[in-house]
Design a binder for these strands. Structure first.
Length: 670
DNA sequence: GCATTCTGTATTTTT
DNA sequence: TACAGAATGC
């Protein structure tokens, strides 16, 4: 069956769909039907006979990747099992799985996430006898990341951590573990240094696509450049106005670099917006025009008119939350807007708390996406650590996490002994332990020796089961039983049975996830290693499954990118929140990125926008006075109407609105 | 080795 | 205020 895409797309979009060969740059403004265009493009490629397995499509987030896979599948009505649509990081992980032995790792490597990384840094710092106050694991994790990705170099200020860094790298290698940065850095190294590997990838993949190109880092670009160098069929899609990840290395200078590296780039601009009302679009355009560095673009819509933007100045964040809750209720009644068509977008995760409370109180069903991932919960991560130590016995970070969880009598002293044996021999702790247990003369007292055996035998017994090729989920359940994890939870929560039940429920949910994974006919070769890799790359909760209907979406602006809602609420449109104080502190130039962030927020709305700026807000212990965000003044003022509930309030609000603007004006004109 | 008390610190955004 | 990790006592 042929897809009639001509009817569904505009001229520019059709051009994008039809241009399959050679380098292409698609500049896709907000709401310009980007996802439609690229899914049609992939579908069209398949239709012209391009085999699935020669297409590689890279995105930035798991959510975007799975969304695209779903759309392509539903459009082509075919299983797309051989189509590679993944994030840069999981593509990197897959590449490493098959080729990492070339650089001295084993294929069963562990992937360390942010918290594993910090644990390792602390561990190494302790070994090197760094004074505790000199070790800010959070900051060091960032420094090491920047060093590894070439964004920062050693200087007089950070030179004291050079040795720590070297030792950190060394430990990773001993533990047969890689961090997130390695998932990009190591594949590049492999492709550059090992011609056979590059060759095999270039032989397999002939068509490349990168979504959200403005958010790729220099290194991610380098990775795709290497792969696409030969075929030159590289299509990148992006919007410089929506570049909001520069703090993570995203560099929209990549757009220029791309044009330089691939001569003859065809540029296609998608400028017709199908999403928002004219009012919303003009507001967004008005705002973004304050940015200096941008590619020329003229986003327009055929839609005329639309509701003015409502601006509210609640007394404090609780009033703000109430207002939002009430308004959602009333909009649902008057316009019949379903809950899932409402988005509440915040700058920082911490702002969700008050709003959640209000939703709970008013019985508004909601879901928060973002926040720490399910897989990062302590109880879940404990179980994952057991799996990791089975997959990769050298993984010391996992070892240390669970060797005494649940409590089995392995204490500080025992660990110290183990560590010193390991260090002496240059082994990982687990290998040192196995070796020590088989010694004639045990370095441990009898009781400790028994405790250690307990641990080792659980790991060994279940490793065999997990790697046997038989279903893993039943074994995992049995292991959780055998560990006595339930009793441990009861003990840990000292009698708070509800908490214990909740946590145990999470573990059961986790075993279900494993079951679903291995039971899914679309999973090619389900195995422990692949499963572990997948789940560590899911760092946020973005399960858009089953219950997406009927719930208000509460999330950060960052995670709202690519989404759209009928009605959008933006709480906390205040100075220091957006633009965020820390961002500006870091570099005043960041104001442009903050503005883009606000632009992304505005352009999520189809029909209606509510912006609120509290007069006061609780921060830490005390209540502070808030100033409306300067971005409010940058919106065309005729598109704004101060929100009014009653006449009396109307005048009051209007007056406050103008006096707020006036005070801002006075502030800045000094 | 474990449980309790104490102390310090709030981390912007995410793979 | 809330929560985690360290120090201290049993």
């Amino acid at each position: 069956m042929s897809i009639n895409y001509l009817k569904e797309l505009n001229d520019r979009q059709i051009e994008a769909v039809n241009t399959i060969n050679g380098p292409i740059l698609i500049i896709a403004g907000a709401g310009s039907g980007k996802t439609r265009t690229i899914t049609f493009r992939i579908a069209h490629m398949l239709e012209t006979g391009i085999p699935q397995n020669s297409i590689l499509s890279l995105t930035f987030t798991n959510k975007a990747a799975s969304e695209m896979a779903i759309r392509v599948t539903s459009l082509t009505r075919k299983k797309c099992t051989h189509l590679t649509i993944s994030t840069f990081h999981s593509f990197g992980a897959k590449l490493l799985r098959s080729s990492i032995h070339h650089i001295g790792y084993k294929a069963n490597f562990s992937i360390y996430d942010q918290s594993d990384k910090m644990a390792l840094i602390k561990e190494v710092a302790r070994e090197l006898k760094f004074p505790r106050e000199a070790v800010d694991a959070y900051a060091l994790a960032h420094l090491f990341s920047d060093i590894k990705t070439g964004m920062r170099s050693w200087n007089s200020e950070n030179d004291q951590y050079r040795e720590l860094y070297a030792e950190y790298l060394d430990h990773l290698k001993t533990y047969n573990a890689v961090d997130f940065d390695d998932l990009i850095v190591l594949p590049i190294r492999l492709l550059r240094d090992t011609p056979e590997i590059l060759q095999s990838y270039q032989d397999r993949f002939h068509y490349f696509m990168v979504d959200e190109f403005q958010d790729t880092s220099k290194l991610q670009y380098e990775l795709i450049r290497l792969l696409a160098e030969k075929s030159k069929n590289l299509c990148v899609v992006g919007d410089d106005d929506q570049s909001i990840y520069s703090w993570r290395g995203a560099d929209y200078g990549n757009i220029l670099q791309f044009e330089h590296d691939f001569p003859g780039v065809i540029e296609i601009k998608l400028e017709q917006n199908y999403r928002s009302t004219e009012t919303i679009l003009s507001a967004a355009n008005g705002l973004i025009s304050h940015n200096r560095n941008r590619k020329h673009k003229n986003l327009w819509t055929g839609e005329k008119g639309g509701n003015a933007l409502e601006v509210i100045f609640p007394e404090n964040e609780e009033d703000e939350a109430h207002f939002i809750a009430e308004q959602i209720r009333s909009v649902k009644q008057t316009d019949g807007t379903p809950f899932h068509e409402v988005g509440v977008l915040v700058r920082t995760n911490s702002l969700t708390k008050t709003i959640e409370t209000a939703f709970l109180k008013d019985n508004i069903p909601y879901k928060v996406s973002g926040g720490t991932s399910f897989f990062q919960r302590k109880e879940v991560k404990d179980i994952i650590s057991y799996l990791r130590i089975m997959a990769n016995p050298d993984d010391d970070v996992s070892f240390l996490r669970i060797c005494n969880t649940p409590r089995r009598g392995i204490g500080k002293k025992t660990i110290r002994t183990l560590r010193s044996i390991a260090e002496e021999k240059g082994y990982s702790i687990y290998s040192a332990l196995s070796a020590a247990l088989h010694l004639e003369v045990s370095p441990f007292p009898t009781k400790v020796k028994t405790d250690l055996w307990d641990f080792v035998s659980v790991v060994e017994v279940y490793r065999e089961k997990m790697l046997s090729g038989k279903p893993m989920a039943p074994s995992l359940k049995a292991m959780v039983e055998e560990l006595g994890y339930w009793a441990y939870l009861v003990q840990e929560t000292h009698g708070n049975e509800r908490t214990a039940k909740f946590k145990y429920g999470n573990i059961l949910a986790f075993t279900d996830i494993l079951e679903t994974y291995e039971g899914n006919p679309d999973t090619i070769d389900p195995n422990l290693f692949d499963f572990l890799n997948r789940i560590t790359l899911i760092t946020r909760d973005d399960n858009q499954e089953s219950d997406e209907n009927g719930r208000v979406n509460l999330m950060t602006i960052h995670s709202a990118k690519g989404l759209e809602f009928d009605i959008v609420f933006l709480p906390g449109v205040e100075e220091n929140i957006i633009p965020h104080a820390r961002a500006i502190e870091e570099d005043p130039k960041n104001i442009e990125e903050e503005r883009r962030l606000f632009y992304v927020a505005l352009t999520r709305a189809r029909k209606k926008l509510y912006l609120s700026s509290c007069r006061t807000r609780k921060l830490l212990r005390n209540t502070i006075d808030c100033i409306p965000s300067p971005f409010l003044d940058e919106l065309p003022q005729d598109l704004i109407k101060p929100y009014t509930e009653e006449k009396v309030v109307e005048e009051q609000d209007a007056m406050d609105f103008f006096s707020a603007i006036k005070s801002r004006f006075n502030d800045t004109s000094e």
